[in-house]
Design a protein around this nucleic acid. Sequence first.
DNA 1: ACCGCCGGGTGCC
DNA 2: ACCGCCGGGTGCC
Length: 926
Amino acid sequence: MKISENTRAELLSSGLAARTWRYVTTLCGRHKNITDTLSQIIRAARAEEPDADGCVLFGNLKGTVVGLRYYTGVVNRGEMVGLVREPQNPYDSNAVKVTNIYGNQVGHIKKELAAAMAYMMDRSLAKVEGVVHTGVNNPFSMPVMLSFWGKEEDRNTVMKHMASRGYKLNPGSPTGDLALYGTSASSYKKGVTVPLTAEELKNAFDNLFDGLMESKDGEKEASVATALLPHQKQALSWMCARENKDALPPCWEKRGELYYNSLTCFSAKEPPGRVRGGILADDMGLGKTLTTIALILTNFHKGKPLPVEKCVSTKRRRIQLRGNPEKVQLPSFKHSSKSIITWIKCLFYPILCTEDPVLFEDLDFAAALSGSTPAVGAKKKKTADLSCCVLLKNTYISLFSRSTLSVSYLLLLRLQDQFKQHMNPDVKLNIYLYYGPDRNRNKKFLSSQDVVITTYNVLSTDFANKGPLNEISWLRVVLDEGHVVRNPNAQMSKAVLELKAQRRWILSGTPIQNSVKDLWMLLAFLRLKPFDAREWWNRVIQRPVLQGDRDGLKNLQNLVKCITLRRTKNSEVNGRRVVSLPEKTVFVEQVELSQQEREEYELARNEGRRTIGRYVAEGSVLKNYADVLAILMRLRQYCCHSDLLPKTSSDLGPAATPAELRECLIEKLRLVLASGSDEECCVCLDSLVLPVITHCAHVFCRPCIAQVIGNEQDKARCPLCRSEIKTSELVEFPPEGMEQEKNVSSESWRTSSKIQALMGNLLRLQSEDNNIKCLVVSQFTRFLTILETPLRQHGFRFVRFDGSMSRQKRTQVIEEFQSSAAGGPTIMLLSLKAGGVGLNLTAASRVFLMDPAWNPATEEQCIDRCHRLGQNRKVVVTKFIVKNSVEENMVKIQRKKQDLVEKAFGLPSTNKKTSRIDDIRALMEL
DNA sequence: ACCGCCGGGTGCC
DNA sequence: ACCGCCGGGTGCC
């Protein structure tokens, strides 16, 4: 039963609609519409909306909403309403107002009840939520079912207080109540359902983003996008459709004249704000960035920028403009200004009518991508297009920025690089890097760019200082690696949410980091109504899902599905694998040590076995973990080249002075980190962040160990060995520059068996095909340095890439290596972990892994730097393993771990401690 | 009648 | 609101 049946309310609400219309018209230039604005108001009001975490249901209470006839907000049966304290109300400081999803007021809570509620709401003892679940046929008041939520410890206080005012909360089990008043209208029909178990929930969650590609639109015309792979065309087509098609957001439907949300039962006359954009969650390496560039280029036509809102919203108009340009005398400057204005009004009218602007069908955006052919038969229209562009460019630039803002995390270069790489040189695209202290903050300047690239840091600083980024109305905002914006309280998140844009995109290879909560940021950024307001998200999605409500999960899955495209390397488009990479072959080449090397190695090995054997017997392996790793490290270094061993490595004994101790600890820390063991912090069980070493030589993340010390105060003990630890005694890496590379002069240089093996391969390869490029990979940068000498001696042209290089240097080296110019380098000396996953080295097709890594995934990642999209040769990998050595044992362990991962996917690994000790015993053959 | 009862005016907070 | 409440009119049946 709708209150809207009351004619007076109808009249009032149409009165509102009329006001709304004027509002829209006046604000149109700033891309606002009424729902946006209201939603912003709600969001501002709810900015402090606490997380519903740990809230339990205290009980339910039937209350009354009064004063309906004074307000225009309309409520349906089953609709959720918001309850907002109104302390400034002149008649009653206890007032609690009732609103619908758009924030329109519906009425007030009756004053006695309001007084009781206000007391608790003001003290944050309880959160009250309302659902109008029974229809009522009177225009003055209606019943509302209130549910009270809060922290368990406040339950008694709340119950007592309510009771003292004569209100008795009906207790109810959370699930039962969900079924009754809970998440959605559909909840009514369900009987008793078993809530999801934590595991089911986790699985569902892990798979939330999987397989989100069925029934997406077909590919964008192939004749056009020759530079794009089929799955990229598919993505582009999907993105264009999301930007331009007039579809209601998920869970909204049109019912007669009204727009209805099936989850909250809300309905309104105005359509909900569309989500022009979404989440492109393709796996790493499928070309999200390239696809985005193609998307940006859809706003270009034959290399010229299109006026963004070339809104030709009816077929007839399009024909006039495109098909018969001579007839539509585009206004030239001889026309009176009045007629230009009329013409422009006519052009823009469709937007003002909230009809969707239709882009030029400039399918030939691909002409802008290098290597593609421009579309045929478009010459005739050239003049028309040009004059049109010029006119609009000059006239409307301030009204509609055609600029895309791209925010990325760290790799500022990536988008820019790719633009350089994929753009046809005659497309004049203005790209501005909004970065650095001298960045141009001029709004006019920025909004006249085609692309503005910046980082989350700059965005967030600018937001705090009221910089221009949040002032400009962007055509499009693209969040690169969008999942990094996660904590809604962070300044960065606020800055991101406040960005004004017509179209919004999130690019992310891993859209989910931990939990449902993270998703809110994504949906809020996309302005997915009504969940961009935290309250509705919490009520309708987050809490039900966390409580194991199946409908809640289904709703979440549906929401995500509607706005996300995700493919993995294994996905198929038109029956073909998305990525079909050339074959990859991995060889293991066994290396025999020379007699001298073998003697040195055995000496060190026997000593190490004795030491570790003692630790194992004593059960103190973990206590002496740094020592153990140091021993293993020494053995691994012997396998490569004895010069890798630090000269001081034998005097790691007790240190005399604090300075020496510190030196010694830093050395150990370096060993632990350099061991490439992908060391985990045993507090957070994650990889080390800001590693520090304790005086007992155990390595932790600084934040983790700081928390441990903070919790235990003065008697803090090392989590691994229970030695006393103090914050002041934590040692970290001194900032750069401490690494004095030992200068290996060519006179004292000597070879090693592994070097011989490598050089043999390289020379053979050179004689077979000297166009082939190689990656020579080691975990030891010093080994890379040693390798430089023989490479030089044999006249190889090579470059080097390791973690110590500046950003600028990196870019230069990559460019040099990737370039196919004659006389360029054919070898890259690469440090195993340098460069992050994004590093693209497809110019190489041979990989030499000089030494095995603890973690096989690290090796895979490294190989994937050349075995990835864009590789068109077969890839051959050679792993050098010293026979009869710790390296062989490492490979065995690698294989065991791999099996484990494949067999027992998802099962928690067996006790980490024991397996680590077992590993070490296996390594030392103990 | 310092009551009860009737019926009109009125109505969120 | 086909209510409750207020306050004025009224007063055996």
